[in-house]
Design a protein around this nucleic acid. Structure first.
Lengths: 232, 232
DNA sequence: CTAATTCTTGCACTGCACGCAAAAATTCAT
DNA sequence: ATGAATTTTTGCGTGCAGTGCAAGAATTAG
């Protein structure tokens, strides 16, 4: 709103009327001596926007919060918001574009690590889930909001969407090496199911450890469900 | 846009300047001697809107089609569109609010029909899927569009959302009668997974029969996937 | 210190979705 | 059939999400 002339370079502390709250925090916590100023500011702004979004939505609900409010709270223009996030929901969730590493892909395709599809799928999901450990606080708040505002789950699906091509290629590649009967769509949905179930389990456990720690429990639930039916 | 004075009562064919295409179709096919005129027109408009939406999106893609275009094509105002559908996507999918019958609910809750959770879940999904047999043509087109425009899958999730409360209640009620280990979220996601997998299987089979006919195959895929892992 | 690069910002615009009240269409009672 | 009651359509106005564009500010490179 008020144009805060950002100046967190190590300059003399002259009469600066508006030392914006969040920009200040940025200078401090954002891994101080990392890269260029540009990079640091980018991270800071991104974090500020996520914080603002989560805080406002927690207080007033998703529909009562506008992008303008979030931007104002974070001290940037509304237009800038969309330089950082595609949608309002993405900011609330602190959406990071996590992808699979080359390593993970190679292992999975060549039938690894265990040779059993479900178990290997579990490994794949595990490596998708681990990066979240960095932004722990934001992820936790995102999970809470995901319960209160189920509409946000849509974004999760969009994420699937974006990576569906990659996933399908992955499945096809492995199928060529080590055939299996399950269809691509089932596997894709299964990944989504595991991610969601894992997050819920993590939440129920009071957010102990990382999300990936609760993946085995999620898989166990599924296996048990099927096993009971088999042993009729 | 142009106010077409609809008059498809069995009136004399006087000089009617605009015998709108779709309204005409309505008088013919819409189960002619059913209920009141109002009801028939409602169905007709709804069908016209879905047809228009699907046709336009098939031709130009989802993002190139506006609600105004759809409404114009169907011969109603844009405002009226939203009397029939909550979103543009709903019209494209021909979204019907299918719910579970009292009968289905009672059976499931008291541990039926088979007593095995997965099998009973299958029955539940089956009864969710059967009503689609009526609007066969529209459903088929919707499935095709769902492939070309994955964004539409979001709507599927919203549907889940809306019925999640009902589903969770269902699960809880059954849990009280016949305990099981699987969490509500896993079961909810499983329902979604089964629906999606079934539709895909139906599509791959060239839309033979009804969607529900391919549900067993979907379940089999899942069971097989788990079974292979168990028999390690 | 200057030039090149990158990022932010304001402005304008399209489109979705909804509330409201007037007008049109349909049903109902007689 | 006619007029009243009800339901539905429609036009108008509003708010908000999201995007393209070009000017200007900040950062970096030389």
């Amino acid at each position: 709103m008020v144009p805060t002339s950002s100046r967190e370079t190590a300059a003399p502390a002259d009469a600066e009327p508006r030392p914006d709250l969040r920009e200040l925090a940025a200078a401090l916590e954002g891994t101080p001596a990392e890269q260029g100023l540009r990079e640091r500011k980018k991270r800071a702004r991104r974090a500020a926007l996520i914080d603002a979004a989560q805080q406002l939505v927690t207080a007033h609900g998703l529909d009562a919060v506008t992008v303008e409010m979030i931007s104002a709270e974070a001290g940037v223009s509304a237009r800038t918001f969309f330089n950082y996030f595609e949608t309002k929901d993405d900011a609330v969730l602190g959406a990071e574009d996590v992808g699979l590493s080359e390593e993970d892909i190679r292992t999975f395709v060549r039938g690894g690590p265990t040779g059993r599809l479900l178990s290997d799928l579990q490994s794949l999901v595990a490596s998708l889930l681990t990066p979240h450990a960095e932004t722990h606080g934001q992820t936790v708040r995102a999970m809470d909001l995901l319960q209160r505002e189920p509409r946000l789950l849509q974004r999760h699906v969009v994420w699937m969407d974006r990576h569906e091509t990659q996933l399908v290629e992955l499945f096809e590649a492995r199928r060529a090496v080590k055939p299996f009967s399950a269809g691509n769509e089932l596997l894709t949905m299964l990944v989504l199911l595991l991610i969601r179930t894992t997050f819920v389990a993590w939440e129920n456990a009071g957010y102990t450890g990382g999300p990936a720690d609760h993946l085995p429990a999620a898989v166990a639930q599924l296996v048990d469900l099927v096993a009971v039916d088999l042993g009729s």
